[in-house]
């Protein structure tokens, strides 16, 4: 679709607000509807839109599958790590009360961190899934096994 100028222009304009919205949903999630899942999917939508319009190769250059693998794992680690950190501070797993000096701040940080982890993983996984399916049959050199799609 590289020839469609209208689409290219509109996409270029739209991608930034989409990402911005994703970030809003992500970081305002503890006060309003939203959170990591939703934000992640919206963010991934931006990348996918980019790939659709400018081509898979271009998208892969911008957001490389290798990066996605790392961010996906990191997201999960942040989630679990937050829980473990709470454990180290003497609370139960994922007990945010222990993350800061007082419970309110602790809850705030905890939620923020966990949602960030979730969001990171969701972006990575959704985009990976898209890459895998879209790239199938075209480039077999860096194919990913189905086990990646969790």
């Amino acid at each position: 679709m590289r020839e469609h100028t209208v689409l290219r222009v509109v996409t270029k304009v739209l991608i930034a607000p989409i990402i911005l919205f994703a970030l809003y949903v992500q970081f305002h999630g503890d006060y309003s509807p939203g959170g990591g899942f939703q934000a992640g999917v919206v963010f991934a939508a931006a990348i996918i839109l980019y790939a659709l319009i400018f081509g898979l190769a271009e998208a892969r250059r911008a957001v490389s599958p290798n990066l996605l693998r790392i961010t996906g794992a990191l997201g999960a680690l942040i989630f679990a790590g937050t829980g473990v950190y709470a454990m180290l501070r003497g609370g139960n797993f994922l007990d945010y009360d222990y993350l800061a000096h007082d419970a309110v701040h602790g809850q705030h940080y905890g939620l923020l961190l966990v949602e960030f982890g979730v969001g990171l993983t969701v972006v990575s996984v959704i985009t990976s899934i898209f890459y895998v399916f879209a790239g199938r049959g075209r480039r077999n050199d860096d194919e990913q096994p189905p086990g990646d799609a969790r």
Binding site: F37, I129, V132, F133, R136, P146, A149, R150
Partner: peptide, 17 residues
């Protein structure tokens, strides 16, 4: 829903293979 999405993705991947 997340479980459902993962299942579908995995299922489709299997179908491709």
């Amino acid at each position: 829903i997340v479980v459902g999405v993962s299942t579908t993705a995995l299922g489709l991947a299997l179908v491709v293979r």
